[in-house]
Simulated assay, not measured.
Amino acid sequence: MAALHRRLEAAAQAEGLVDVAYTTVDSPVGPLLLAATPRGLVRVAYAIEDHDSVLEDLAVRLSPRVLRAPKRLDAAARELDEYFARTRERFDVELDLSLSRGFRRLVQQHLPEIGYGQTRSYRQMAELVGNPKAVRAVGTACATNPLPVVVPCHRVLRTDGTLGGYIGGLEAKTALLALEAAA
Rank of each mutant, 00 (worst) to 15 (best):
P28I: 09
P152H: 02
E9Q: 14
A182V: 01
P148I: 07
L95M: 13
V42W: 02
A14W: 09
A134H: 01
T24P: 11
H5F: 13
I167L: 15
R65G: 02
R136C: 05
L111P: 03
L97V: 09
L106D: 10
D96K: 05
R61Y: 00
A76P: 03
L170R: 15
G130D: 11
G30F: 10
V54A: 00
A3S: 05
A2L: 15
R105E: 15
V151C: 14
I167A: 15
L34K: 08
V42A: 11
L73K: 01
M1K: 14
R90I: 11
H5L: 10
T23N: 12
L80D: 04
A3D: 11
G115F: 08
D74V: 10
A172I: 05
Y116W: 12
E171L: 13
L41H: 01
V151W: 11
Q124F: 11
T37G: 03
I48M: 02
L55M: 05
V93T: 05
L17I: 12
D74G: 10
T87G: 12
P28F: 04
L67E: 05
R78G: 10
G168S: 01
S27E: 08
L128N: 13
A181V: 12
S53G: 08
V156G: 00
A47L: 01
A3N: 03
G16D: 02
H154W: 05
E79G: 13
K173S: 05
A14S: 13
C153R: 09
P148C: 07
A12Q: 03
Y83P: 14
T140W: 14
R158L: 07
L55I: 04
S100W: 08
G117K: 07
E180I: 06
T162A: 00
G117Q: 03
A76K: 03
N145K: 10
G117H: 06
R72N: 00
L170T: 12
L4T: 15
R61S: 02
I114Y: 04
I114M: 08
V25T: 10
R155F: 06
S27A: 05
E113H: 08
L17R: 15
L170N: 14
P112Q: 14
F103I: 05
E15L: 13
A182R: 05
D96H: 08
R88K: 06
L111H: 04
E56K: 13
Q13G: 10
L55K: 00
L32E: 12
L106H: 06
L176M: 02
S98V: 12
A77I: 10
L33W: 02
